[in-house]
Design a binder for these strands. Sequence first.
DNA 1: AATCCTTTCAACCGCCGTTCA
DNA 2: GTGAACGGCGGTTGAAAGGAT
Length: 273
Amino acid sequence: MGRPPCCDKGGVKKGPWTPEEDLMLVSYIQEHGPGNWRAVPSNTGLMRCSKSCRLRWTNYLRPGIKRGSFTEQEEKLIIHLQALLGNRWAAIASYLPERTDNDIKNYWNTHLKKKLTKAQDGTERASNHHRSMIKGQWERRLQTDIHTAKQALRDALSLDEEKPLPNGDLHPNLFKPNHAPSSSTNNVVYASSTENISRLLQGWMRSKPDKARACSDSGSSQGSVRCESVSSGEEGKPLSWLETWLFEESTGQDQEMTLDGLQLPLDYPTEFL
DNA sequence: AATCCTTTCAACCGCCGTTCA
DNA sequence: GTGAACGGCGGTTGAAAGGAT
């Protein structure tokens, strides 16, 4: 028997949030900043538990969230990152700063998993050599996958670099005002209610960049790859082990990768090996 | 037009790691 | 050193919307 859930108290409202509740939460965060979620319900008068408030903020109200269909590039990136990191949605989401981990998780479960299963079925039917693949072939295939994943990540990161932020944020898209969807993502739709509320916060985000900066908005301590950063030495700009790994390879040291001799950063999590 | 089935996604639940008294 | 409180994460659920019959 664990500790009782935080929302066990009576009188705690559940279910969909109303615009009025959203406004109450946003006004509070606008004034006090995200964090100290425990105090939010009592200070705002919201009949919601702290977890619910945090979730509503991080998954829906937080400025810079892109809603609507995923682009092909995002889709590919998610597939590659999932192959690399597994179901660590928060870590994956840190590479798609405009998407929430919940969104990515939902998209994976509803679209990508099916897509991949279908594709896998097709290839499995076509030939049985999948199973009888000798070790060397399997390794080569894995190497190719890793290489492809790294390439996709590099592409994504270099895209980000095209739009540098004055304050040197890791991901320039982070907290990008969402009034101007990128021209390359025509199918992007911003939820109007979220957008309206988010606009309320834009001034605040600009005036409190430190508070607003995210290792996810409130500073994830475990899941986020981005938070496990190492110093690159470039103006003190921190890089995650993954980014370091990518950039090291892209600086001309494209040595042949083998599983045995794979050159990984010192802080590469051993769980991925 | 009515009913049933499927899909989507916001929200909840329970667990885990971290922090702090 | 210990235990409670808190924040964060991933898995799961269920209501709503959309599509098929």
